[in-house]
Design a protein around this nucleic acid. Structure first.
Lengths: 336, 336
DNA sequence: CTGTTAGCGCGTTCAC
DNA sequence: GTGAACGCGCTAACAG
């Protein structure tokens, strides 16, 4: 690999002149610059990243940390973030926490080696402990949920979908179509994610004057299989509902699978609305009505937010919430 | 950030003793080691990655380059590679070539900055030019297709699914079930990927003594929408087939969408087999028979192959082909 | 067993 | 305008 010293030797100039010519910082005659550029080209000179980093502490890399690589929910986010960061000449390092709090802390700990300039972090469940670990990295950070730390909030931004509103939108749509017995199909009730979505569901029912029926709350695990079994049980226990709000597309599909097996028609017998609006909702038959969570935009803005912290050295907090958009398809029956 | 010098000062020992204690290379008394470890812990010392890299030229990063982030086909591959590399303490840097030859060359060129130790590269279309660009990176490389360069093959490995065999398997399955008018739904006929799959389709028909009918070849673009329109046209032009071999799940689903809209029953009127076996094939109704391309294993082995080039300094070529496995579901009618 | 020294490649002083 | 010199943090060679 050619270094600036090779270029210096070739041109008869010194290494520091070469450095100035190449970076554009400091004085350098036009003539010298031209010969240097030509020589660099000839030698195939490319600056050594590690040497630059050691000098300026700039890695040109951002870690994007997500709970689950196989979940299509995150595809659009990765896409959006990648596209935006590329314009800044930044690369993404993928972090993968496998839905495990322990793994999250491990990944964050490894970041202390300063091999990235910033962090975009997605989790199902923010805790004070997690936030402390994020703060300890001392990295410009954006989290993809809204979370109030209580104390110091300035070290991270929130770019997120308004989760309660998304669930509210789905529930409200069922109500508007005349449904009153609406089941909620969520994940672990203790995780922030499910809590927020449940809150939106509850709010919509409350506004319609319908009390919460605990028997209509189903807790699964955000997977198709999990939801399939959970909904199968639900029906076999004799529970009755005319509509289901599923907390993600995967669970919406699991629910559909169960209905098909049990001979229940969709939307004739059971209506389904899910959250996410990934491509999965186009694959089902009938196509599934789903609430778009705009993960592409979340990824883009999250990237813009980290970059503004890095480039403009912003040190105060900025948050940005997106509002969900319901995409109507054919999985909900109009009762009125 | 604490450095070894901070630890040295704290313990009253020299920086090199600290380095030896921390890396485990070279002599260091147990007593010294204990105090050093304790001090390092206290100070929250973490080695600076860039400094290490500058010294040993080891980045502990692999670039994984794929054509399309939104395509679920690649997610199992990312997953497999990530899991394997993690065991080696390696991270993935995501490269995204957007299905564009120009972008591929750009990404490869950027790699000359030596910010990764190895490369796993996926493309739809390998060309001599592309291979030359890969060779120019001078990086241990695995490509996820089989491609014969003609000249120097030693600088890269191939870890791949046997594509012709995958298409052969799908076609053979239709034949075995009594179908004879079988359409081929592929991508751009000029790209290696579609060519290989078409070859398998052709071989299966040939073995059954059925001539290729050009009218039954449909060229779309590997997307759901593209396949939807292409198949819609196909039917409206009055072309007739009893089965379709779709080159990926997305196109299989597009084909299903078209059938549903045209009032064609699946599998009653049209049978569909696709390649990929992503989670998408479980979302449809009926569930889609699909050929598993084992992308998870491809990702894992590709990672193992790069690592063996890096760690064991292997310089000769190794290739590995996987054989596809058909996963039978309910989208194909048994005519006999 | 430990400390001194030098260098990885680059960028930024500071003299000239 | 340009070059010499130094340091980012770490490691390896050598000397003690």
């Amino acid at each position: 690999m050619a270094t600036i010293y090779d270029v210096a030797k070739r041109t008869g100039l010194s290494a520091s002149t070469v450095a100035r010519a190449l970076t554009g910082n400091g004085y350098c005659s036009q003539a010298a610059k031209a010969t240097i550029l030509a020589a660099a080209e000839e030698l195939g000179y490319v600056p050594h990243q590690a040497a630059k980093t050691l000098k300026n502490n700039i890695t040109k890399k951002i870690m994007l940390c997500i709970p689950d690589i196989m979940n299509p929910y995150y595809f659009a986010m990765i896409h959006g973030a990648t596209q935006t960061l590329e314009r800044f000449g930044y690369n993404i390092i993928l972090g993968y926490t496998m839905h495990s709090p322990k793994k999250e802390l491990e990944v964050l700990d490894s970041l202390k080696g300063r091999y990235v300039d910033g962090l975009i972090f997605g989790s199902f469940d923010y805790t004070p402990k997690l936030l402390r670990a994020i703060e300890a990295t001392d990295l410009p950070t954006v989290i993809t949920s809204f979370y109030e730390n209580g104390e110091n909030q300035d070290f991270y931004d929130c770019v997120y979908m308004d989760q309660p509103r998304a669930a509210w939108t789905a529930t409200e749509y069922c109500l508007k179509n005349g449904h009153t017995r609406i089941a909620f199909l969520g994940g672990d009730a203790k995780e922030q994610n499910t809590k927020e979505r449940f809150a939106g569901y509850k709010k919509a029912l409350g506004e319609a004057g319908i009390p919460i029926d605990k028997a209509l709350t189903i807790n699964a695990d955000f997977t198709r299989e999990g939801a399939y079994h959970a909904f199968h049980n639900f029906i076999q226990q004799g529970r009755e509902c005319t509509a289901v709000v599923a907390c993600n597309d995967l669970m919406g599909i699991g629910c559909m699978n169960a209905c098909q097996e049990l001979g229940l028609d969709i939307p004739g017998d059971i209506s389904i609305v899910s959250l996410d609006n990934t491509d999965y909702s186009l694959c089902t038959n009938p196509a599934m009505t789903s609430v778009d969570m705009m993960q592409g935009q979340v990824g883009e803005e999250a990237a813009n937010f980290v970059m503004s912290r890095i480039l403009d050295k912003r040190t105060y907090q900025k948050n940005m919430a997106f509002s969900p958009v319901l995409v109507e398809r054919h999985s909900v029956r109009k009762l009125k």
